Amino acid sequence: MPSIELPDRLLSLYTAELKERNGSYVIEIPSRELQQGDLQHEETYKIALLPAVTAKNEPDQIQDNPKPPIQKGDVRVVEIVTIGQQGDGIAKVERGYVVIVPETEVGDKVAVEITNVTENFALGEVTSGRSNREQ
């Protein structure tokens, strides 16, 4: 199978079964996808359907819990898109993966070094960049 290029704006990625229900076909979206905040109830989204991969060791296999797209020590340029409950800036990278960046504001474009990586989010420290507060 050829490799699949995923856009940076991908909001969700998971495996689901196509089911028949009342004369239509339905793909159920797990509630965790809405709880993570990228998807909103009653909104419209574009979707892409990819064939399931059956080989256990197939490198292109899409998993329910893919590995984080970044690693500790990586340096990324990100744009802060929102502010979290603790007041830290939040950026998103591939597959909508969250990077929390303290002392930033919405619209800041900064280079960050990833200091901690978990399954659901990473923490980053600003190494350089432009802050809206400085303008």
Rank of each mutant, 00 (worst) to 15 (best):
P2E: 13
L6K: 08
R9E: 10
L11P: 08
S12H: 04
L13F: 01
A16D: 12
E17G: 10
E17I: 06
L18R: 13
R21Q: 12
N22P: 07
G23E: 00
S24C: 06
Y25Q: 14
V26T: 13
I27G: 09
I27P: 07
I29P: 02
I29E: 12
P30T: 00
L34P: 07
G37I: 05
G37N: 08
D38G: 09
H41N: 12
E42T: 08
E42V: 00
T44L: 14
T44G: 09
Y45E: 09
I47V: 14
A48F: 15
A55L: 07
K56S: 11
N57Y: 09
P59A: 13
Q61T: 15
I62W: 01
I62M: 05
I62N: 00
D64V: 03
K67I: 02
K67G: 02
P68W: 01
I70Y: 00
Q71F: 06
Q71K: 13
K72M: 07
K72C: 01
G73K: 12
G73F: 03
V75H: 08
V75R: 12
R76S: 04
R76K: 09
V77F: 08
E79H: 03
V81L: 14
Q86S: 13
Q86I: 09
K92G: 02
K92W: 00
V93R: 01
V93H: 06
R95A: 08
R95V: 07
G96Q: 03
G96N: 08
V98D: 01
V101E: 03
V101S: 10
P102I: 06
E105N: 10
E105Q: 11
V106A: 08
G107I: 03
D108I: 01
K109Q: 10
A111F: 05
A111W: 01
I114Q: 02
T115Q: 13
N116V: 04
V117Q: 06
E119Q: 15
N120C: 02
N120K: 15
L123C: 11
G124V: 00
E125L: 10
E125D: 13
V126W: 08
S128N: 12
S128M: 03
R130K: 14
R130D: 12
R130P: 02
S131V: 10
S131F: 15
S131K: 15
S131Q: 15
E134K: 14
Q135E: 15
